[in-house]
């Protein structure tokens, strides 16, 4: 088991080194002519105003909540999906009950207009 992950560990180290080496090497050859105006924050020459603060819509936030709960549901279904071939029909019906519960929640939110994100 650990042998399988040894390669992943090595790949992680190699990827980190390669990823970090490129900017560090580039630092050696690139020109360095920083003037204060260049380091200012802007987008298309529009300077940003004051603190970086925008009133972000809380709707994005509800989106992440929905995502998190479906994430958990998916994790509960994955082991069942793995064992599916060896299981009986009634387990499929149990899982369909599980899924219908979630679908019910989703449809309820949809009807209430909570899925209109913007």
């Amino acid at each position: 088991m650990l042998n399988q992950f040894a390669f992943i560990g090595f790949l992680l180290i190699v990827a980190l080194i390669l990823g970090a080496a490129t900017p560090i090497l580039a630092r050696l050859v690139r020109p360095q002519k920083a003037i204060p105006r260049k380091l200012e924050m802007d987008e298309c020459d529009m300077r940003t105003h004051g603190e970086t603060w925008v009133e972000f819509k809380a709707q994005y936030y509800t989106l992440v909540i929905v995502f998190l709960l479906f994430d958990v549901a998916a994790v509960f279904l994955l082991p069942w999906a793995l064992a599916y071939n060896t299981l009986e029909l009634y387990t499929a019906i149990e899982v369909i009950a599980f899924i219908l519960m979630l679908l019910g929640g989703l449809v309820y939110l949809w009807r209430k207009g909570a899925l209109e994100w913007l």
Partner: peptide, 9 residues
């Protein structure tokens, strides 16, 4: 995990 996610949400 399920409870942690529910609690966080």
């Amino acid at each position: 995990y399920a409870v942690a996610a529910a609690e966080a949400a």
